[in-house]
Design a protein around this nucleic acid. Structure first.
Length: 251
DNA sequence: GCGACAG
DNA sequence: ATCTTGTCGC
């Protein structure tokens, strides 16, 4: 017999394979072909924050910043109840529903502020089955998406080897990067030194409707610190929201 | 048994 | 994700 958990994972895996058919791994927007991204005015970021002892309730956050100035144009915090557990490789099934919900609210209230590209906290193509959260959210929202992970997911032969660490030490200045190649040779993402002062890179991969090269260039151009400003602001503001609403931790 | 394990 | 402040250094 199959445990309920195993049955769930089989369904989720089939769903990833199915949604993957709608994935676009190339540029689809005119601004993406411009060297300076002229025509790009709004970049979004999403994130979820939790209270210490509670993995069911979370704050889903969406921010929209102006490009290239990174000024706040829109912000929304919404308490959500998560239904799915976190399983490595299946983060999207936990986080997508609430993130789509905050996007839906923006569409209803301020459609003119819909971002032209969305930064997602987690991987896109750089994933066990090449369909991480940034791809999943991209396909379901049909927005151009960039996946940015703060930690390396060891996948498809990409490991934290001496060689990987040595490639990291070879990154000299912000904007330097090296490719993350699967055992098959396919390039799944790019390790990017996103600010001069960060020793640890971020891991950029295609989410949807953007090429890897463009995603890396854009990520670099949105970084004041290590984490791209849209994601950083979403993280800061969702945590701030929880602190204000639950000053003494979980009830 | 041991290590890995985006968020 | 979260548990946790200050501190040392550039």
């Amino acid at each position: 017999m199959l445990s309920p958990g195993e049955e769930l994972v089989k369904r989720w895996e089939r769903e990833q394979v199915c949604l993957k058919e709608r994935l676009l791994e190339e540029n689809t927007e005119a601004w993406q072909e411009s060297g300076s991204f002229s025509g790009l005015a709004r970049v979004g970021g999403v994130d979820l924050s939790f209270i210490k002892g509670d993995d069911l309730n979370a704050c889903a956050q969406l921010v929209v910043l102006s490009y290239p100035d990174m000024q706040l144009l829109y912000e929304d915090s919404e308490m959500v109840t998560l239904t799915a557990p976190y399983l490595p490789g299946y983060l999207a099934f936990r986080e997508c529903p609430p993130l789509l919900q905050v996007l839906k609210r923006l569409e209803g209230e301020k459609p003119c502020l819909m971002p032209q590209v969305l930064f997602v906290d987690g991987n896109g193509l750089f994933h066990y089955r090449e369909f991480g959260l940034a791809c999943h959210l991209g396909v379901l929202s049909d927005l151009p998406c960039v996946g940015v992970a703060k930690n390396l997911l060891q996948v498809q032969g990409v490991i934290r080897s001496e060689d990987h660490l040595s490639q990291i030490s070879a990154l000299k200045k912000a904007g330097d990067s090296f490719p993350l190649a699967a055992a098959t040779g396919r390039i799944l993402g790019q390790a990017l030194k996103s600010s001069d002062s960060s020793s640890k890179p971020v891991y950029v991969s295609v989410g949807h409707r953007i090429s890897l090269n463009t995603a890396v260039r854009l990520t670099h151009s949105c970084c004041r610190y290590r984490v791209p400003e849209p994601i950083r602001q979403a993280d800061i503001r969702s945590r701030e929201y929880l602190r204000r609403r639950f000053p003494s931790g979980p009830p």
